[in-house]
Amino acid sequence: MTVEVFLTAEQETAGLFRPHALITLRAIVHREALRFLGQRGRLIAALVRPLVWLFVFAAGFRAALGLSITPPYRTYLTYEIYIVPGLIGMILLFSGMQSSLSLVYDREMGSMRLLLTAPLPRWWLLACRLLAGSLIAVLQAYVFLAIAALYGIRFPWLGYVAAAPAMALAAMMLGALGLLLSSFIRQLENFAGVMNFVIFPMFFLSSALYPLWSMAEASPRLRDLCALNPFTHAVELIRFALYAKSNTTALAITLAAFIVFGLVAVWGYDPARGTTARKT
């Protein structure tokens, strides 16, 4: 029995190097791109929230909130500049949840079950879907950065390049979280409700809007909660990358969260143990 399981796992791994595995990846990415292009209001909806925060909220708090010189910044800065990485994180977070919402819809329609019957490892199929959603999220983030540049908020050119892998990892981590949630939630209506209990606490209990030292002055416990939030470290990873600097702590925690969320999501989509085994 052990030999048979080993051979099966070995055959599945070897299957990833066959052409049909890459064809599957291309097909899933192509499908998600067509879906994104077909939903013309999706990009606008994804940008409205961060742009309102940037143009209205940040402008109103510019005089009230002062920010000291902390890494990666070398000088004092306006509040608009500080919250841009957090707003990028907002885009990636909402995009990851939106992609996972479509997973629940596909499962209700039956297309998700059809995808999981493909002769490829389940983790590969889910990774393809996760990668497709992350690419779209990063594209939305760069559109936001372009608008911010027109508004006068610019970063070093090298930072725009270095931010790409940081945003990709953050998008993969947040997408894996959404994938995890979708693996245990059966109905579309329930998932839409759970999204609010995940998105808003994760966003507000982070360094997206305020630095951790500022929160520590108000409440050390609140600061500790923000430090435990993986979204905080995803934002800090992007913040440092925009200045072409590294943050090993943020990188390690974001990567670890991605691995944990991804493994639990794959377990949840196992027909023998996850919600896909239940009758809908």
Rank of each mutant, 00 (worst) to 15 (best):
3 V>T: 12
4 E>G: 09
15 G>L: 12
21 A>E: 00
22 L>Y: 10
23 I>R: 09
31 R>V: 01
35 R>V: 08
37 L>A: 14
37 L>T: 10
40 R>F: 11
45 A>M: 13
47 L>G: 05
49 R>G: 14
51 L>E: 04
54 L>Q: 07
59 A>L: 11
67 L>D: 03
69 I>N: 11
75 T>M: 11
75 T>L: 10
75 T>F: 03
100 S>M: 07
103 L>I: 08
109 M>I: 11
109 M>Q: 15
112 M>T: 06
114 L>W: 06
119 P>E: 14
128 C>I: 03
131 L>S: 15
138 V>I: 09
148 A>S: 08
150 L>K: 13
150 L>V: 14
156 P>R: 02
157 W>M: 15
160 Y>R: 00
169 L>D: 04
171 A>Y: 05
180 L>W: 04
191 F>Q: 13
193 G>F: 02
193 G>E: 05
194 V>G: 11
195 M>V: 12
195 M>K: 14
199 I>C: 11
201 P>C: 07
204 F>V: 15
204 F>E: 08
205 L>G: 03
207 S>I: 08
216 A>W: 07
222 L>M: 05
223 R>C: 09
224 D>M: 14
225 L>E: 01
225 L>I: 10
227 A>R: 05
228 L>D: 06
231 F>C: 04
231 F>K: 03
232 T>W: 06
233 H>R: 06
237 L>T: 01
238 I>Q: 01
242 L>R: 00
244 A>Q: 00
245 K>T: 02
249 T>W: 08
250 A>I: 00
250 A>P: 00
258 F>N: 01
260 V>D: 01
268 G>M: 09
268 G>T: 11
275 T>K: 13
